[in-house]
Protein backbone atom coordinates (compact mmCIF):
# COMPACT_ATOMS: atom_id res chain seq x y z
CA UNK A 1 0.00 0.00 0.00
CA UNK A 2 1.41 3.30 -1.02
CA UNK A 3 1.80 6.13 1.40
CA UNK A 4 -0.31 8.37 -0.76
CA UNK A 5 -4.01 7.76 -0.54
CA UNK A 6 -4.81 10.01 -3.50
CA UNK A 7 -2.55 10.62 -6.46
CA UNK A 8 -3.24 12.90 -9.36
CA UNK A 9 -1.12 11.99 -12.34
CA UNK A 10 -0.65 14.39 -15.25
CA UNK A 11 -4.32 15.31 -15.14
CA UNK A 12 -5.96 17.46 -17.80
CA UNK A 13 -9.58 18.39 -17.85
CA UNK A 14 -11.64 20.81 -19.86
CA UNK A 15 -14.99 21.60 -21.34
CA UNK A 16 -15.41 21.76 -25.12
CA UNK A 17 -11.73 21.91 -25.91
CA UNK A 18 -10.95 24.69 -23.43
CA UNK A 19 -8.65 23.11 -20.91
CA UNK A 20 -9.15 24.06 -17.29
CA UNK A 21 -6.35 21.87 -16.02
CA UNK A 22 -3.21 21.25 -18.05
CA UNK A 23 -1.24 18.40 -16.62
CA UNK A 24 -1.60 18.54 -12.86
CA UNK A 25 0.43 16.30 -10.56
CA UNK A 26 -0.38 16.07 -6.87
CA UNK A 27 -0.09 13.47 -4.18
CA UNK A 28 -1.88 13.38 -0.86
CA UNK A 29 -0.21 11.55 2.00
CA UNK A 30 -2.28 9.60 4.48
CA UNK A 31 -3.17 11.35 7.69
CA UNK A 32 -2.38 14.84 6.46
CA UNK A 33 -4.41 17.95 5.90
CA UNK A 34 -3.69 19.23 2.41
CA UNK A 35 -4.94 22.52 1.07
CA UNK A 36 -5.49 23.21 -2.61
CA UNK A 37 -5.51 26.94 -3.14
CA UNK A 38 -5.96 29.23 -6.06
CA UNK A 39 -7.91 32.17 -7.31
CA UNK A 40 -11.60 32.01 -8.10
CA UNK A 41 -12.27 30.09 -11.27
CA UNK A 42 -9.00 28.21 -11.22
CA UNK A 43 -10.85 24.87 -11.16
CA UNK A 44 -10.24 23.88 -7.56
CA UNK A 45 -13.74 22.52 -7.01
CA UNK A 46 -13.50 20.68 -10.31
CA UNK A 47 -10.47 18.88 -8.91
CA UNK A 48 -12.55 17.58 -6.02
CA UNK A 49 -15.21 16.37 -8.43
CA UNK A 50 -12.54 14.59 -10.46
CA UNK A 51 -11.30 12.85 -7.32
CA UNK A 52 -14.88 11.90 -6.45
CA UNK A 53 -15.45 10.55 -9.94
CA UNK A 54 -18.27 12.92 -10.79
CA UNK A 55 -16.29 14.12 -13.79
CA UNK A 56 -14.02 12.22 -16.13
CA UNK A 57 -10.55 13.60 -16.92
CA UNK A 58 -9.64 14.45 -20.52
CA UNK A 59 -6.12 13.10 -20.06
CA UNK A 60 -4.22 11.55 -17.20
CA UNK A 61 -5.72 9.86 -14.20
CA UNK A 62 -6.66 10.12 -10.55
CA UNK A 63 -5.77 7.26 -8.25
CA UNK A 64 -7.64 6.75 -5.00
CA UNK A 65 -6.25 4.03 -2.78
CA UNK A 66 -4.38 2.65 -5.78
CA UNK A 67 -7.41 2.49 -8.10
CA UNK A 68 -7.99 4.59 -11.18
CA UNK A 69 -11.18 6.51 -10.51
CA UNK A 70 -12.45 7.02 -14.05
CA UNK A 71 -11.88 3.38 -15.04
CA UNK A 72 -14.35 2.16 -12.42
CA UNK A 73 -17.82 1.02 -13.31
CA UNK A 74 -20.72 2.37 -11.29
CA UNK A 75 -20.42 -0.26 -8.61
CA UNK A 76 -16.67 0.18 -8.22
CA UNK A 77 -17.08 3.94 -8.12
CA UNK A 78 -19.68 3.68 -5.36
CA UNK A 79 -17.33 1.42 -3.40
CA UNK A 80 -14.58 4.02 -3.73
CA UNK A 81 -16.90 6.81 -2.69
CA UNK A 82 -17.71 4.99 0.52
CA UNK A 83 -14.15 5.85 1.54
CA UNK A 84 -14.80 9.52 0.89
CA UNK A 85 -16.76 12.15 2.69
CA UNK A 86 -17.43 15.45 1.04
CA UNK A 87 -18.47 18.73 2.53
CA UNK A 88 -20.16 20.90 -0.06
CA UNK A 89 -19.76 24.64 -0.21
CA UNK A 90 -23.08 25.43 1.40
CA UNK A 91 -23.55 22.12 3.17
CA UNK A 92 -26.07 20.63 0.74
CA UNK A 93 -28.18 19.28 3.58
CA UNK A 94 -31.35 17.45 2.57
CA UNK A 95 -33.97 20.07 3.25
CA UNK A 96 -36.79 17.56 3.75
CA UNK A 97 -34.96 15.73 6.55
CA UNK A 98 -34.18 16.85 10.09
CA UNK A 99 -30.62 17.34 11.31
CA UNK A 100 -30.72 13.91 12.91
CA UNK A 101 -32.03 12.23 9.76
CA UNK A 102 -29.45 14.03 7.63
CA UNK A 103 -26.60 12.56 9.62
CA UNK A 104 -28.33 9.19 9.78
CA UNK A 105 -28.85 9.18 6.00
CA UNK A 106 -25.54 7.60 4.89
CA UNK A 107 -25.65 5.15 7.79
CA UNK A 108 -29.14 4.02 6.90
CA UNK A 109 -28.34 3.81 3.19
CA UNK A 110 -25.23 1.70 3.55
CA UNK A 111 -25.77 -0.41 6.63
CA UNK A 112 -28.53 -2.46 8.16
CA UNK A 113 -27.73 -1.42 11.71
CA UNK A 114 -30.52 -1.47 14.28
CA UNK A 115 -32.03 1.87 15.21
CA UNK A 116 -30.31 2.00 18.61
CA UNK A 117 -26.85 1.79 17.05
CA UNK A 118 -27.77 4.31 14.35
CA UNK A 119 -28.82 6.64 17.13
CA UNK A 120 -25.56 6.18 19.00
CA UNK A 121 -23.52 6.84 15.87
CA UNK A 122 -25.51 9.93 14.96
CA UNK A 123 -25.18 11.29 18.49
CA UNK A 124 -21.42 10.72 18.45
CA UNK A 125 -21.01 12.53 15.14
CA UNK A 126 -23.27 15.40 16.17
CA UNK A 127 -21.43 15.67 19.46
CA UNK A 128 -18.14 15.88 17.62
CA UNK A 129 -19.34 18.99 15.80
CA UNK A 130 -21.04 20.31 18.93
CA UNK A 131 -24.59 20.17 17.64
CA UNK A 132 -26.10 17.28 19.56
CA UNK A 133 -28.68 19.69 20.94
CA UNK A 134 -29.82 20.74 17.46
CA UNK A 135 -30.76 17.26 16.31
CA UNK A 136 -34.48 17.93 15.95
CA UNK A 137 -34.13 21.13 13.97
CA UNK A 138 -34.77 21.29 10.24
CA UNK A 139 -31.95 22.53 7.97
CA UNK A 140 -33.87 25.75 7.24
CA UNK A 141 -33.70 26.64 10.93
CA UNK A 142 -29.89 26.52 11.03
CA UNK A 143 -27.41 29.32 10.48
CA UNK A 144 -24.86 28.93 7.70
CA UNK A 145 -22.11 27.88 10.09
CA UNK A 146 -24.32 25.36 11.87
CA UNK A 147 -25.48 23.90 8.56
CA UNK A 148 -21.86 23.49 7.54
CA UNK A 149 -21.12 21.62 10.78
CA UNK A 150 -24.12 19.33 10.36
CA UNK A 151 -22.96 18.60 6.83
CA UNK A 152 -19.54 17.82 8.27
CA UNK A 153 -21.10 15.41 10.75
CA UNK A 154 -22.89 13.78 7.84
CA UNK A 155 -19.70 13.59 5.76
CA UNK A 156 -17.87 11.75 8.54
CA UNK A 157 -20.82 9.52 9.48
CA UNK A 158 -19.23 6.43 7.99
CA UNK A 159 -15.67 7.29 9.13
CA UNK A 160 -14.25 7.97 5.66
CA UNK A 161 -10.56 7.72 4.87
CA UNK A 162 -10.67 10.89 2.80
CA UNK A 163 -12.62 14.01 3.73
CA UNK A 164 -12.98 16.64 1.06
CA UNK A 165 -13.93 20.19 1.87
CA UNK A 166 -15.23 22.50 -0.83
CA UNK A 167 -14.68 26.10 0.28
CA UNK A 168 -15.51 25.39 3.92
CA UNK A 169 -14.90 28.99 5.04
CA UNK A 170 -17.01 30.95 2.56
CA UNK A 171 -19.65 33.15 4.09
CA UNK A 172 -18.85 32.36 7.72
CA UNK A 173 -18.47 34.83 10.53
CA UNK A 174 -15.04 34.90 12.25
CA UNK A 175 -16.19 32.70 15.14
CA UNK A 176 -17.75 30.01 12.94
CA UNK A 177 -14.67 30.27 10.77
CA UNK A 178 -12.26 29.37 13.55
CA UNK A 179 -14.67 26.72 14.88
CA UNK A 180 -14.74 25.07 11.46
CA UNK A 181 -11.01 25.47 11.16
CA UNK A 182 -10.33 23.68 14.43
CA UNK A 183 -12.87 20.98 13.60
CA UNK A 184 -11.17 20.12 10.33
CA UNK A 185 -7.83 19.64 12.05
CA UNK A 186 -9.13 17.78 15.09
CA UNK A 187 -11.47 15.50 13.15
CA UNK A 188 -8.69 14.63 10.75
CA UNK A 189 -6.41 13.63 13.60
CA UNK A 190 -9.15 11.84 15.55
CA UNK A 191 -10.33 9.77 12.57
CA UNK A 192 -6.87 9.22 11.14
CA UNK A 193 -8.25 10.45 7.84
CA UNK A 194 -6.77 12.51 5.05
CA UNK A 195 -8.34 15.89 4.51
CA UNK A 196 -8.34 17.72 1.20
CA UNK A 197 -9.22 21.33 1.61
CA UNK A 198 -10.14 23.50 -1.34
CA UNK A 199 -10.13 27.15 -0.38
CA UNK A 200 -8.83 30.58 -1.12
CA UNK A 201 -8.69 31.74 2.49
CA UNK A 202 -4.96 31.94 3.00
CA UNK A 203 -4.84 32.60 6.73
CA UNK A 204 -7.11 29.72 7.77
CA UNK A 205 -5.67 27.26 5.31
CA UNK A 206 -2.11 27.99 6.33
CA UNK A 207 -2.97 27.62 9.99
CA UNK A 208 -4.18 24.03 9.68
CA UNK A 209 -2.67 22.55 6.52
CA UNK A 210 0.36 20.30 6.50
CA UNK A 211 0.98 20.84 2.84
CA UNK A 212 -0.31 23.36 0.32
CA UNK A 213 -0.73 23.30 -3.46
CA UNK A 214 -1.33 26.56 -5.27
CA UNK A 215 -3.00 26.20 -8.66
CA UNK A 216 -3.13 28.88 -11.29
CA UNK A 217 -3.66 28.86 -15.05
CA UNK A 218 -4.38 25.14 -14.97
CA UNK A 219 -1.06 24.05 -13.51
CA UNK A 220 0.38 23.66 -10.04
CA UNK A 221 2.16 26.97 -9.60
CA UNK A 222 3.93 25.94 -6.46
CA UNK A 223 3.69 23.55 -3.55
CA UNK A 224 5.16 23.14 -0.11
CA UNK A 225 4.49 23.53 3.57
CA UNK A 226 2.82 26.75 4.71
CA UNK A 227 6.14 28.01 6.07
CA UNK A 228 7.89 27.38 2.75
CA UNK A 229 5.23 29.29 0.91
CA UNK A 230 5.26 32.27 3.23
CA UNK A 231 8.93 32.65 2.48
CA UNK A 232 8.52 31.98 -1.24
CA UNK A 233 10.02 34.56 -3.56
CA UNK A 234 7.96 33.60 -6.61
CA UNK A 235 6.04 36.72 -7.63
CA UNK A 236 2.70 34.95 -8.08
CA UNK A 237 2.90 33.14 -4.77
CA UNK A 238 3.89 36.33 -3.06
CA UNK A 239 0.95 38.16 -4.54
CA UNK A 240 -1.45 35.36 -3.65
CA UNK A 241 -0.29 34.74 -0.12
CA UNK A 242 -0.26 38.39 0.76
CA UNK A 243 -3.32 39.30 -1.26
CA UNK A 244 -1.83 42.10 -3.33
CA UNK A 245 -3.78 43.73 -6.15
CA UNK A 246 -0.75 44.29 -8.30
CA UNK A 247 1.34 41.43 -9.54
CA UNK A 248 1.54 38.74 -12.18
CA UNK A 249 -2.22 38.12 -11.98
CA UNK A 250 -3.68 40.87 -14.15
CA UNK A 251 -6.64 42.90 -12.99
CA UNK A 252 -8.18 42.68 -16.48
CA UNK A 253 -9.57 39.56 -18.08
CA UNK A 254 -7.77 38.93 -21.37
CA UNK A 255 -9.20 41.51 -23.81
CA UNK A 256 -8.18 43.32 -26.94
CA UNK A 257 -6.65 46.73 -26.68
CA UNK A 258 -8.97 49.09 -24.80
CA UNK A 259 -8.72 51.94 -27.27
CA UNK A 260 -9.24 49.74 -30.32
CA UNK A 261 -12.16 48.01 -28.61
CA UNK A 262 -13.95 51.25 -27.90
CA UNK A 263 -13.47 52.69 -31.38
CA UNK A 264 -14.84 49.87 -33.47
CA UNK A 265 -18.59 49.45 -33.93
CA UNK A 266 -20.44 46.50 -32.46
CA UNK A 267 -21.27 44.94 -35.86
CA UNK A 268 -17.65 43.93 -36.18
CA UNK A 269 -18.23 41.31 -33.44
Amino acid sequence: MSDNIVEIDNLSFGYKGRLLHKGINMSFARGKVIAIMGGSGSGKTTLLRLIGGQLKPTHGKVLVDGEVVHKQNRHGLYLLRRKMGMLFQFGALFTDLSVYENVAFPIREHTDLPESIVRDLVMMKLNAVGLRGARNLMPTELSGGMARRVALARAIALDPAIIMYDEPFTGLDPISMSVTCNLIRSLNDALGATSILVTHDVKEAFSIADYVYIVANGVVETEGTPDDLRKSELPFVHQFVHGEVDGPVPFHYAAPDYKKDMLRGHDAE
Partner: peptide, 8 residues
Amino acid sequence: SAMEMMAV
Protein backbone atom coordinates in the same frame (compact mmCIF):
# COMPACT_ATOMS: atom_id res chain seq x y z
CA SER B 1 -24.37 15.80 -5.90
CA ALA B 2 -24.02 15.20 -2.18
CA MET B 3 -26.07 12.03 -2.56
CA GLU B 4 -23.88 10.90 -5.45
CA MET B 5 -20.80 11.49 -3.34
CA MET B 6 -22.32 9.43 -0.53
CA ALA B 7 -22.52 6.56 -3.04
CA VAL B 8 -26.30 6.78 -3.12
